[in-house]
Design a protein around this nucleic acid. Sequence first.
DNA 1: TGCGTTTAGTATGCGCGCTTATTGAATGAA
DNA 2: TTCATTCAATAAGCGCGCATACTAAACGCA
Lengths: 148, 148
Amino acid sequence: MTGALESRFPTPERSTGLMLWRVTNAWQREIRAALAPFDFTHVQFVLLAVLASAQHDEHLTQRELADRAATDPMMTSQVLRALEAKGLVDRRPHPSDGRAIALSATPQGVTLANRANAAVEAADRAFFAPLAPGTERFTVDLGRLLAS
Amino acid sequence: MTGALESRFPTPERSTGLMLWRVTNAWQREIRAALAPFDFTHVQFVLLAVLASAQHDEHLTQRELADRAATDPMMTSQVLRALEAKGLVDRRPHPSDGRAIALSATPQGVTLANRANAAVEAADRAFFAPLAPGTERFTVDLGRLLAS
DNA sequence: TGCGTTTAGTATGCGCGCTTATTGAATGAA
DNA sequence: TTCATTCAATAAGCGCGCATACTAAACGCA
């Protein structure tokens, strides 16, 4: 660092934070490309997939779905209306809570979620392949960062 | 996975991609909080810091700065005008390229970049502390993902 | 029962990351 | 020198992530 900035890091490549930022941007590009054939954004896919995977027991509310998917409630509200417009999600009044909305994936939604999920999982495998055989360890590290 | 989605991952916590996404969002929140006292966004800080650290040899153009900082050229253009309005950056016509802009951090810009950098590096240390003593290894992993 | 508090959903607005397109200047080849 | 190509900077627009604020319904407690 010969410039006017006093940093611990001689180059941006040494900063864990900056690297994390760049890697996630690169990953988002890959996922976006993988989902483009399905006309899905990443958030659309995540919400539909989480909804489909919870389909067995009950109808989630938007709040519950947002909690499970770790998405912003505002985004969740907006994206679910888009998914409803596509005919992939049903949004009905909640039977016992007049404020809430009971969500369910339509059959088309489930079908598309499964096909898109295969594409996303393939893109993920390709993206994280350079970590093999340490991919699991890397995922555990990410979990540690979330726990705190 | 007892629902309607056929996935390799029983829960989102097992998907490296989703974990990466969540961790980066959490990291962005920490950085945003650390930079709030300086009235900086993350991109503002990164561009100013990279510019200050390159200050020694020449005046970068916006394109060169965007390349070094790995930021989008559109963002770079817009954020640099904001930094100029704050008096932290000078944007002059390039002496030999009529299309380009010669950038330099002002003295106030350098001072603020150094103070903000200390705050960001502290926030980074705190955020990645749970990885110790494997932080370096984690950073190397991130580098591997970018290389491909 | 009544009323203050909490909660589900949504409107608005801002900065980021990206795509597409435009303008004008530099470049390179005939 | 001329003209097609490349390139720096920027305009416009979209979806994401977040903050703030509002409405209406549910909840809790006396």
